[in-house]
Simulated assay, not measured.
Amino acid sequence: MEPLFLKPVFQEKIWGGDQLHTVFGFDLPNDKIGEDWAISAHPHGVSVVENGPFKGWKLDKLWEEHKEVFGNPSEEVFPLLTKILDAADDLSVQVHPDDEYGLKHEGELGKTECWYVIDAKPGSKIVYGHNAETREELAEMIKDEEWNKLLRYVPVKKGDFFYVPSGTIHAIGSGILILETQQSSDTTYRVYDYDRKDDEGNTRELHIQQSIDVTTVPAISPYLEIQESRNGNSSIVTYLETEFFNVYEWDVAGQLSLKKTGAYTLMTVVDGYGNLVVNGQSYEVKAGSSCILPNDIESWMLEGEMKVIASTPGK
């Protein structure tokens, strides 16, 4: 089996920019593209396989009809979604539900996610958590629009990593380029959107009651036990191993040999270029390349100078 290289799906956003073109060389339809859904089987943006025996197949259909490619998993839907986000402007302050609330109220999974900061302009920051001690206090501060009192702001720089479990109030700030690994869900509850308007003069919908319902109170700051192992001049960083996904960074300087640690592996090159070698076959990869390594690929090698963010399904 070959790696499954995937065609990007672009999403226009009010806060989007043009870095998906200037940094990754993608041919964009306009300069307001906020997201590249790099690996997705979500109905709002389904990836298409670009090579091999499944060329032209949509990922959701491949998952449905050829579960053996993924190790015959039990999930009905492909559980992960990988995105690259270009925040030319601030994203809305938002929160996502957990699986129980999402399935009950939206008919889809909840949304736990994590971020690897590909790049960030000086002074960039994110919203990450809140200061309310009770749900009643949270509701009151939202009602009174006490955003500076309610929200926690965290400075960010290139190479930072953040875990954003469901229930976490958060927002990516302007000037940040991020690789996001998340559950396959598109449910977002907006708490605050800076009162901005779209091209037609309309403000975007807020979801105040849902946000109050699903926010974790008091806020929890997850502890990350990040581990790094060296392999010659290259390295493997383990950022997360959770029930939702496991996330790794492969920092390649020359060569890096890898073996599978999950039923299948998702990978996106976020910087540099080189080759992915599988069963003696070499595939050129560069910043922006995304693929899935199917279940029957036991090992592979990366050659070149590149940084890759990879993920496998949760424990």
Rank of each mutant, 00 (worst) to 15 (best):
I176H: 02
I178Q: 08
I178F: 04
I178N: 06
I178Y: 04
E180K: 06
T181N: 13
Q183R: 01
Q183C: 04
S184E: 04
S184Q: 07
S185V: 05
S185T: 15
D186W: 07
D186Y: 06
T187Y: 03
Y189D: 02
R190N: 02
R190M: 04
R190C: 03
V191W: 00
Y192W: 15
Y192A: 04
D193N: 08
D193L: 05
Y194Q: 09
D195R: 13
K197Q: 11
D199V: 15
E200K: 15
G201E: 11
G201R: 13
N202V: 13
T203D: 03
T203W: 02
T203H: 06
R204S: 12
E205C: 03
E205L: 15
E205D: 12
L206H: 07
H207D: 01
I208S: 01
I208D: 04
I208K: 06
Q210R: 12
S211G: 02
I212M: 02
V217K: 02
V217H: 01
P218F: 11
P218W: 06
A219L: 02
I220R: 11
S221G: 00
Y223E: 09
Y223M: 06
L224Y: 06
I226E: 06
Q227R: 12
Q227H: 09
S229T: 14
S229M: 09
R230A: 12
R230C: 05
G232V: 14
S234D: 06
S234F: 07
S235G: 03
T238N: 04
T238M: 05
L240M: 08
E241G: 04
E241H: 05
E241T: 13
E241M: 05
T242S: 12
E243L: 06
F244T: 03
F245H: 03
F245N: 02
N246T: 15
N246D: 12
Y248K: 12
Y248Q: 05
V252C: 02
A253W: 05
G254L: 08
Q255E: 11
L256T: 02
L256R: 01
L256P: 00
L256D: 04
S257F: 11
S257V: 13
S257M: 08
G262H: 13
T265H: 11
L266S: 09
M267Q: 12
M267R: 13
T268H: 11
T268L: 14
T268D: 10
V269T: 14
V270P: 00
G272E: 10
G272N: 06
G272H: 09
Y273M: 10
G274Q: 10
N275E: 15
N275Q: 15
L276S: 06
V277S: 05
V278Q: 08
V278H: 08
N279V: 08
